[in-house]
Design a binder for these strands. Sequence first.
DNA 1: GCCAACGTTGGC
DNA 2: GCCAACGTTGGC
Length: 142
Amino acid sequence: MAYWLLKSEPTTFSIEDLAKLPQKTSPWDGVRNYQARNYLKSMTVGDLAFFYYSSCKTPGIAGIVEIVKKAYPEKNQTEDPPRWFSPDVKLVQKFPSVLPLSQIKEVGSLTTMILLRKGNRLSVTPVQQKEWETIIKLCKHY
DNA sequence: GCCAACGTTGGC
DNA sequence: GCCAACGTTGGC
């Protein structure tokens, strides 16, 4: 059982978009970075991930999704063997409001997060259990 | 294999 | 819009 953080630009794919889909489930596709892809491939069914909004007015965590299908090759790929993979994710919870990045930054015990590392651009990152629990608690005050 | 140029990400 | 950071490309 592992924890992750998945970035998305809300104008491209928002948590509301996910909520509207059948079974509230969608492939997490379009990732074009090898390190991020390797993380996607290492996810297992039952893992949980934060749905993070980037490149928007209030960057932050919008909710929680669950991995419901292990990564498989993306459709419409011409490469053989396939290069890009995506797991299916299902909406677990949409937070009442986005937990802002600015708030996350203010919590001392969260400075270990890869998300907060200088120059980090990875769109898929692992999250430690302690970090996960801290953020869950933080949300309840939000 | 090196590295300059260029493209992309993403917070501010 | 700016800019730092990083990834990719492609000539040599």
